[in-house]
């Protein structure tokens, strides 16, 4: 396990560089002149020159890249074009909100998805199974931001059970959870739909397998056979699949934060895009990339803990 962990961590470093490099070069190369992006064609010659100087755009591209990299490693992500304030602290301030949203969504997805998948596998081709397949198909076909809107309309506006704006500036833990609930649910249900499918198909496979037959032949209770033996073997593919899905979740979080008016990295990015804040967009995307790489690393390490083949290499 230790060897595996070290190898994974070491591999993450080039990945982080890769993310930064891709974002940097795509924005520079695919996007035309940054000054055009920022100022449009309204910019006076003077403004353009000033901006070029400020952003160091007259240097060769490689030099710019290295400089940006150096800055990044020192924690400096430049200043926002719009309000001239440093970007890094802005991001760090809103980051926790996005993280808590994503984690909550993952938990909801697993807590709803896994039991549903197991229930469907146990009652194959009967009512619960059909219901689940319909639910998961609909859940997969509904964009999470749309689901958020529907939940908002129903539970917040119509029924008034939940608040409309997704956060509260001050407040204790309960408040935070209360405001977190609907946004996390809208993201989490999509994940639940996905997880329930994976769980169902994996459980069906395990339930017909030899080792489950052996477990029954040992006289174990049905409960132990299903949860201790069959389900535990399913956890590996479920964790793997969830790891892939986290990227999708983070993408969805961007939109959810907009729908629910929650602060977070997503809202930051959306505003930066609306204001054509070049530096902020770039930094925001780099940050997203970094987080996703780190999340993937965490999932891989988690995977190492679960799968005995990896654990005891």
């Amino acid at each position: 396990m230790l060897g595996y962990a070290i190898r994974r961590i070491i591999f993450t470093i080039p990945m982080l560089f890769f993310v930064f490099t891709v974002v940097f070069f795509v924005m520079r190369l695919a996007g035309g002149d940054p000054t055009y992006v920022i100022l449009g064609d309204q910019g006076s010659q003077e403004a353009v020159t000033q901006l070029r100087l400020k952003l160091g755009l007259d240097e060769p591209l490689i030099v710019q890249y290295v400089q940006a990299l150096k800055n990044l490693l020192q924690g400096n992500m430049g200043e926002s074009i719009i309000n001239d304030r440093p970007i890094a602290p802005q991001i760090m301030r809103v980051l926790p909100f996005t993280i808590e949203l994503t984690i909550a969504a993952i938990l909801i997805g697993l807590l709803i998805g896994i039991p549903l998948g197991v229930a469907a596998a146990l009652r194959r081709n009967k009512m619960p199974d059909y219901l689940l397949r319909v639910f998961s198909l609909v859940g997969l076909s509904t964009p999470s931001f749309y689901l958020g809107i529907l939940l908002l309309l129903l539970f917040a506006m119509q029924l008034d059970w939940f608040p409309i704006i997704g956060y509260k500036r001050t407040g204790d833990l309960w408040d935070r959870l209360y405001y977190l609930f609907l946004p996390a649910l809208s993201l989490g249900l999509g994940k639940a739909a996905f997880v329930s499918r994976v769980t169902r198909s994996n459980m069906l496979e395990r339930l017909g397998s030899d080792f489950v037959r052996t477990a029954r032949a040992k006289g174990l209770s049905e409960y132990k056979v299903i949860y201790k033996h069959a389900l535990k073997d399913c956890m590996i593919p479920i964790v793997t699949v969830s790891g892939v899905y986290v990227g999708v979740l983070m993408g969805g979080a961007i939109l959810t934060e907009t729908v629910f008016n929650r602060p977070g990295l997503g809202k930051f990015l959306v505003e930066a895009i609306a204001q054509r804040d070049y530096s902020a967009i770039q930094s925001g995307l780099v940050f997203y990339g970094i987080i996703i790489v780190l999340v993937n690393l965490t999932v891989d390490l988690l995977y190492g803990l679960i799968d005995p083949r990896v654990k005891y290499e």
């Binding site: 993310v19 795509v26 996007g31 035309g32 990227g247 996703i292």
Partner: peptide, 20 residues
């Protein structure tokens, strides 16, 4: 594999932000 670790939406945002 490295490109695949980017969620498609984020990659989409990146490219469209750059290209317009």
């Amino acid at each position: 594999d490295s490109l695949m670790s980017f969620p498609s939406l984020l990659l989409g945002i990146l490219i469209v932000s750059a290209m317009g």
